[in-house]
């Protein structure tokens, strides 16, 4: 948000007869009404409905009955769900800093160069963002595969034992690599654009003070794009906690390493569509949504001095 947004010179503030003001108030709501309808139908109602579903239990013997927080007690003592939560938290801890770190370094290097090669590299690094996550995961699934993949052929060439990149021990890093490949370009472009927006005179001042390229990058550029970094951290955090597409696709080629309860979202999907346990699945979805929402909110609150949203 720009600094001007803080106090927008609103048209309705202009002095005028109150009839006109009231009519304009109504016009304002009219413009928002279509979106508000969709917002209510596909966000507010599903959230409320998920909560309602999660408070009930359906069984053959008793039909649907109110069961209070039973589904939540079940979820938070369910080893499969807890293991999934622990796993996405581990993914978040590794993936978020890794993606943003690489994106920041690439963006800083690109920002310091104006050559044609740099411009081409910028485009190439961004290309994976144009590849749907599902297709990206499939491609990496092939590359990891002991049957098709270059990694097996490379190790045979070197006389080393072929790594199984799809087994229990490596699947975590294999997934981290897919997500990093997919998203670094996107974050890099955001950071790069923010860097391009910095006033050049600041660099000249830093140079006069004797700062070298690295010092300028760390002490001048990075602090100036702190708000951007905070926001993409939140986006990347939200994405990681919802982890679903990549492990679901890799499951087909790594059924031993990726179980249907690998992430909370996959677990909710399996509960809903394999076992028709919609009430329990809703409790999981709702918990995950709430945790993600609160997590992002707390993060934005703690960094409010830097994120420009306060």
């Amino acid at each position: 948000m720009s600094s001007r947004t803080a106090s927008p010179p609103s048209v309705a503030e202009a002095p005028g007869p109150s009839v006109l003001t009231r009519r304009r108030q109504r016009t304002g709501w009219l413009f928002i009404a279509p979106f508000a309808l969709v917002f209510t139908t596909f966000l507010v109602v599903p959230l409320g409905y998920a909560f309602w579903l999660s408070l009930h239990t359906k069984s053959l013997a008793f039909g649907t009955r109110f069961s209070g927080l039973e589904n939540y007690t079940k979820a938070f003592t369910d080893p499969a769900f807890l293991e999934g939560v622990r796993r996405v938290l581990a993914f978040a801890l590794v993936m978020v800093p890794l993606q943003l770190g690489i994106a920041l370094v690439v963006a800083l290097v690109l920002d310091s160069l104006t050559t044609r090669l740099a411009a081409v590299s910028r485009l190439l690094v961004f290309v994976p963002y144009a590849v749907p996550a599902v297709i990206g995961a499939m491609m990496w699934g092939f590359l990891y595969s002991p049957d098709f993949g270059p990694f097996t052929q490379l190790s045979e060439l070197l006389g080393l034992p072929a790594p199984d990149l799809l087994d229990h021990g490596s699947i975590f890093s294999s997934l981290v690599n897919i997500v990093t490949w997919q998203w670094v370009g996107y974050y890099m472009v955001i950071i790069y654009s923010a860097l391009q927006g910095i006033d050049q005179e600041i660099y000249e001042a830093a140079q006069l003070d004797g700062a070298n390229g690295l010092q300028t990058a760390l002490r001048v550029k990075v602090p100036m794009i702190a708000s951007t970094m905070v926001l993409i951290t939140v986006f990347s955090l939200i994405g990681t906690l919802q982890f679903f597409n990549e492990p679901t696709i890799l499951q087909a080629v790594a059924p031993g390493a990726i179980t249907p309860d690998y992430t909370p979202n996959m677990y909710a999907y399996a509960q809903a569509f394999s076992y028709s346990a919609f009430n329990y699945a809703s409790a999981i979805s709702f918990s995950l949504g709430l945790v993600t929402f609160l997590g992002s909110y707390v993060f934005l609150f703690l960094t409010r001095k830097r994120n420009g949203l306060s």
Binding site: F39, F42, L43, V45, P46, L47, Y49, A50, L53, V234, I238, L241, Q242, F244, N265, A268, Y269, A272, F278, A281, S282, S285, F286, L288, G289, T292, F293, S296, Y297, L309
Partner: peptide
């Protein structure tokens, strides 16, 4: 409320929307 909604993960809505 709208700004808060940006932080609601869309996949959390899929299952209740499906039932609806």
């Amino acid at each position: 409320i709208l700004l808060g909604a940006v932080m609601v993960p869309p996949t959390a809505l899929v299952i209740p929307t499906f039932v609806m």
